[in-house]
Amino acid sequence: MDMPSSFSLFRRTKALETEIDQFLDKISQASLLFKRAIQIYTESGCTEEFDEKLHQVNQLESTADHLRRAIETQLYTQTLIPESRGDVLGLLENLDSVINDLEGALWGFSIEIPVIPEDYRADYVALTDMVVQAVESLVLASRAFFRNIEAVPDHNHKVMFYEKEADRVSTKLKKAIFRSDLPLSQKAQLRNFVEHIDNVADKSEDVADRLAIYTIKRTV
């Protein structure tokens, strides 16, 4: 659509809106791929399909990084949203660290190739499911922050809920691991992987907490 140059302000705004949406899409996609990757790993180990998922998450992470930098640069060079600029910056960087954690956990599997006994596989998948739900809710809450501030709490409380659920599953899983007859080294390794996954939910909760404050700031 051709617009006169006097509307360039609005055109730039539209482009930036799209970039923010794309950034949030990347995080959501990365979490869904993460879920698939863990499923694949628990079912068939470190297969080619798993590596492919890891590769996809890896690419999403670097695209998200590029997008984040571009958004931040534009916000500052065009002195947009002076009041919420710092908050938006904080939000984007924290969301970026969520995707980093997802990627880090998958790299862990790829490098250490832990052997997960049959008994625990279902719990690993259940834990992953909770974590991914938390990330998904966080992405929705973040979208609402930009488009419909009043809806932020509706999504935020779900992040808290899934984080609690993830904690519950991870505690149960860790207890089961350490009460088993496995060698201590394997117990420690399995515990590390539980924590790798659970960390993502914790990080999501931290971001949600900040988001709640940013929301209060904007509605006062």
Binding site: L16, E17, I20, L80, I81, V88
Partner: peptide
Amino acid sequence: LRHAKIHLLRTDAYTRA
């Protein structure tokens, strides 16, 4: 604003204009 649900950046652009 509550009913229009305008994007934060767009609200910013309109306010500026």
